[in-house]
Amino acid sequence: MTAPAPAASLPRTDPAQSPLAIRGLTVSYGQQPVVFSVDMTVQDGAMTAIIGPNGAGKSTLLKAALNIVKPLAGRVSVYGRPLAEQAHRIAYVPQRASVDWDFPTEALDVVLMGLYRDLGLLRRVRAHHIKHAKDCLARVGMEDFADRQIGQLSGGQQQRVFLARALAQKADLYLLDEPFAGVDAATERAIIDVLKSLKDEGKTVVAVHHDLSTVRAYFDTVFLINRRKMGEGPIATAFTPETVQATYGGRLADGQITQLTQDA
């Protein structure tokens, strides 16, 4: 694993041009806010982990940024413009649990869903669309499984197919909800390789992440959330025992945190 780039080499992002800038976002289910008045400025061309304890609003933050969940208050801008104008530049990989695995669809069909904006209602699926979808499957190492019904794939394989669907969109900003949850080691490696290659192409990656021990190896910047924003910035300055302890509210033992947040 390559060492994380030093913070200084990352371009500072002007909020007005950030791939994803969120201001004053509040989301509530009923009267209980799940995300309260959160500001977030995602750095262009970096890989950002959103971390926080269970129920801290990590997934909700992503969903609200995408307008899947309607926020109570707040503004979201994407590359300096309103979300509605720039939604085509975002690819989203939802949590695996959100899908009916018995649905009659094969891996290649799932990837073709990523071309919906190109295909629209009636345009025919042509050979070059299929080829593009197959290339995306190959990029996540799933080319041999194109004609499998998705329920017949393992959890890790399903996650890779979803990543391929996001790749098919040729987006600039990739938002992933717990991409490593419940996947095998081989898949985790395959996914992180693809994400790093996206970063090398200048794309921006934001992932909800639950495994504190890999934050340092995988990501450049962190965003800590526990209903409110608890910290944001390069790993070196923002991912410290103090910020993590504050975010997790004493749910982790001190020794554990020190170990997780220090360089190995």
Partner: peptide
Amino acid sequence: LVAFDSGYAETQG
């Protein structure tokens, strides 16, 4: 798309 994955469908406009 909505039947399979409504959250994703929303991100597709």
